[in-house]
Amino acid sequence: MKAGDFSKLIKLRLTFLVTFSASISFLIGSKVNGVIDWKNWGMLIIGGFLVTSAANGFNEIIEKDLDKLMKRTSDRPIPAGRMTTGQALVLSLFMGIFGTYLLGSLNPTAGFLSVFSLLLYAFAYTPLKRKSPIAVFVGAIPGALPPLIGYVAAHPKIDEIALVLFAIQFVWQFPHFWAIAWVLDDDYKLAGFRLLPSGNRDTVSAVFAFASTIIMLPVSLLPTYYGYGGIYVGVVSLILSLVFLYQGFMLMRNRDIKSAKSLMYGSFLYLPVVQLMFLFDFIGKV
């Protein structure tokens, strides 16, 4: 098996982003405790990476026949015939079990949430993608759990800070995924995926995407509102949210792929910057 095939099986870029958000939240939780255990931080990164990789592996096993139909996924190792379903299953099971063990050894709650996230993503969100646009809402739950898992791995209590971290990533996913769904709608329809709110590139879907950027603005300011972050994270979050809002408005006005791409690329920048600013500002206040 080539490294490139393994990278595609686990969706490396997505897995990296998920692991990054969990690692930032772990550091925030650690500052609440007053000390950072770098060994545990490393275990969280490895465990989170493995569990996320396993979820993506199960996703590709389930969708192997559908992936053959889409241009962007036809070269994945299973539909391309470079990896068998059995090989992918063994790899995914190993990663899921070992990753859950690592996270569970840090904190039972982190272990439980990681199993719940994996199961919800692979076995609820994945099949729902062909049935209803509600799949985006269902998928946003496991998608927002990594920062919660990272936080409770360091600070074993689901408190206000944990819920704020969850809320930011949960709401962020709607403009993020609807922008992606708009860009890839033609390809998605080849596999029967229904991810846009109306099922089509139209005004209704664009309005939903724009509305989600409106909601993102106050949610991004929650760290400052509750006093966990200061002026820096507040200002940066406000500026990024206003840019995000503008990009969502342009999609609603133009209803074209170019505007959707702008919103999509904006989302890639938005989340890590806001999370990093939350961490830096929080460290400065503690």
Rank of each mutant, 00 (worst) to 15 (best):
M1N: 14
M1K: 15
G4H: 06
L12M: 09
R13L: 14
L14T: 04
L14I: 03
T15P: 00
L17W: 01
V18T: 00
T19F: 00
T19C: 00
S21N: 02
I24C: 04
S30G: 14
V32K: 09
I36K: 07
D37V: 01
D37C: 04
D37M: 08
W41P: 00
G42C: 01
M43I: 15
I45A: 10
F49I: 00
L50K: 02
T52F: 00
A54I: 02
N56L: 00
E60W: 10
I61A: 00
D65A: 04
T73P: 05
T73V: 05
S74K: 15
P79E: 13
T84P: 03
T85L: 12
T85M: 12
V90K: 10
L91N: 10
F94P: 04
G96Q: 06
T100E: 15
Y101L: 15
L103I: 05
N107T: 10
G111R: 03
F112M: 13
F112A: 15
L113S: 02
L113K: 03
V115W: 05
L118T: 01
L118E: 14
L119E: 10
A122M: 02
A124Y: 11
A124P: 08
T126G: 04
T126W: 07
L128A: 12
K129I: 11
S132E: 15
P133V: 09
V136Y: 10
F137C: 05
F137E: 11
A140P: 06
I141C: 12
P142A: 07
G143C: 01
A144Y: 04
P147N: 11
P147I: 00
P147M: 07
L148D: 14
I149N: 03
G150R: 06
H155F: 15
H155S: 13
H155L: 14
A162Q: 12
L163V: 11
F166L: 15
A167Q: 13
I168N: 14
I168C: 12
Q169I: 02
F170V: 07
W172N: 08
W172K: 11
H176N: 00
F177I: 00
V183H: 06
L184I: 07
Y188K: 03
L190S: 08
A191Y: 10
F193Q: 12
R194G: 06
R194P: 04
L195S: 09
L195Y: 10
L195H: 11
L196G: 01
L196K: 12
P197T: 04
P197D: 07
G199A: 10
R201W: 06
D202K: 02
D202I: 11
S205A: 06
A206D: 08
A206F: 10
V207K: 15
F210E: 05
F210L: 08
S220P: 03
L222M: 13
P223T: 08
P223D: 13
P223W: 13
T224F: 13
Y225M: 05
Y228N: 14
Y232T: 08
V233P: 01
V235G: 05
S237F: 04
L238K: 05
L240S: 09
L242F: 15
V243R: 12
F244T: 02
L245Q: 04
G248F: 02
G248H: 05
M250P: 03
R253Y: 14
N254A: 11
R255M: 13
R255N: 14
R255A: 08
D256C: 00
I257G: 00
I257S: 02
S262G: 07
L263S: 10
Y265H: 04
Y265I: 01
S267E: 02
L271C: 02
L279Q: 13
D281W: 05
F282D: 15
G284Q: 10
K285Y: 11
